[in-house]
Amino acid sequence: MTVDDLAEELQIPKSTIYGWKYRGIGPAWIRVGKHLRARRVHVDAWLDSLNTGNSEAVAEATATASSEHLTQTA
C-alpha cells in the first residue's frame, strides 16, 4: 500500500501520514528504493490498535490531522 492509497482510504492529506511517520505514529513502513510502502496487515493492525482504547495515540493522531487540515485551508 502506498502513502497515496492510505491517504485515500482514510480520507486524510498525505502530509498527515508523512507527519505521523516522522513522529513514529501509524503503520510500519517499508522503503522500497525511494518509495514507501505499508503492508495491509500492518495498516489493519495499526487501525485496530486505535480502536482498542489506545486513547493517547488516537488523541495525538486526531489533533495532528486537525491542525494540519487547518493549516492547509488557511
Rank of each mutant, 00 (worst) to 15 (best):
L10A: 13
G53H: 10
L70A: 15
K34R: 15
E68P: 00
K21E: 09
A65G: 06
G19E: 04
T71H: 01
D44G: 00
A63C: 06
Y18L: 09
T64D: 12
T64W: 04
Y22M: 07
S66F: 15
R40L: 14
E60T: 07
L36M: 08
V58M: 15
I30C: 01
S67A: 11
K34S: 12
N51A: 15
R40G: 02
V58D: 09
K21D: 04
V41P: 00
L6V: 15
E68L: 13
A7G: 13
R40S: 08
D5F: 08
E8N: 12
G33N: 10
R31M: 08
D5M: 08
W29C: 09
Y18D: 02
L47R: 14
L36N: 11
Q72T: 06
G24F: 00
K14H: 04
H69P: 00
G53V: 04
L70W: 10
R40Q: 12
V41W: 12
E68V: 10
Y18M: 09
A59C: 10
P27I: 09
W46M: 02
E68F: 12
V3D: 05
W20N: 01
Y18I: 04
Q11A: 14
E9V: 05
S66C: 11
Y18S: 06
S55C: 09
W29H: 04
H35M: 11
A7D: 06
I25Y: 09
S49K: 08
